[in-house]
């Protein structure tokens, strides 16, 4: 668990957060089994009894590491995970998840974290979408129904997290379970196809598999889930909490 200890001068608070989160992760493997066992039957609609959430511990997230990003690219077929988007320039290519490096220029304190759709309870993208293509599923996952997306991009104007991308050209190399195409807006789906099958998102799986353990996925509504227990015990942060959007993605150590 010390691959993240490149900071040698831990202050007391950081130390505490870090050790606490490590304790939380120790629970994780058992819990993953639990959540697989609880996979919803295929013919049962999602319900608001579940609120999928993601807890990201910035203390364990190494600067320069982009395992979560690569996993998402491979899983969902964008970026290096696809042979498409050869015409789009760097500012036009889709990015469902990205690593953001943050530095406090006054104190010098720096941290890094993955940024993606925050799966808000009150998503501004869904508010502004004229056709209702942007919507929040009952279990809290915010999606774009590309069948009725007209490509107006108003959701991209409204999203505080710049989590969305517009597809600027014809695609042919999509993954069967992750449809995406020209003229529509897309974003992190929280790997909805995996979640519906009882798995955790690809980014979380990769982060755990590489033993970084900076990402914890689960049901925020289930008091027994490790994510619910962690957010109940330790201080977590919502990015742009001032907007009161109640995102499903929370952060620690920022």
């Amino acid at each position: 668990m010390n691959e993240t200890s490149e900071h040698t001068d831990l202050n007391r608070r950081e130390f505490l957060t870090r050790s606490a989160a490590t304790a939380g992760v120790a629970l994780a493997p058992g819990v993953m089994l639990y959540s697989v066992a609880q996979a919803r039957p295929a013919d049962e609609p999602v319900s608001s009894a579940v609120r999928w959430g993601l807890l990201i511990d910035s203390n364990k997230c190494a600067s320069g590491c982009s395992d979560c990003v690569s996993a998402c690219e491979r899983e969902n077929g964008w970026g290096t995970g696809s042979t498409d988007e050869t015409h789009s320039d760097a500012t036009q290519k889709a990015q469902w998840i990205r690593k953001v490096e943050v530095k406090n220029t006054e104190t010098g304190h720096a941290f890094t974290l993955p940024m993606m759709c925050q799966h808000c309870e009150n998503p501004p993208c869904a508010d502004v979408c004229p056709t209702g293509a942007s919507f929040r599923r009952d279990d809290g996952i915010v999606l774009v129904d590309k069948h009725i997306c007209i490509g107006c991009r108003y959701c991209m104007m409204a999203c505080p997290y710049k989590a969305r991308s517009f597809v600027h050209e014809t695609l042919t190399d999509q993954k069967p379970y992750a449809p995406r195409g020209k003229g529509t807006v897309e974003a992190c789906t929280l790997c909805v196809h995996r979640v519906d099958a009882g798995d955790s998102p690809a980014c979380v799986e990769a982060c755990t598999a590489e033993n970084h353990n900076a990402m914890l996925f689960g049901d925020l509504n289930d008091p027994e889930s490790p994510i619910a227990k962690t957010v109940a015990t330790y201080a977590t942060t919502q990015i742009r909490a001032d907007l009161n959007l109640n995102p499903g993605v929370r952060y620690q150590g920022i």
Binding site: A42, P45, D139, V192
Partner: peptide
Amino acid sequence: RDKTMHEGIRTKKHSLK
């Protein structure tokens, strides 16, 4: 498609996939 998209119903019978 609407059932899958909005309700997360993933039965195989009428799925395009």
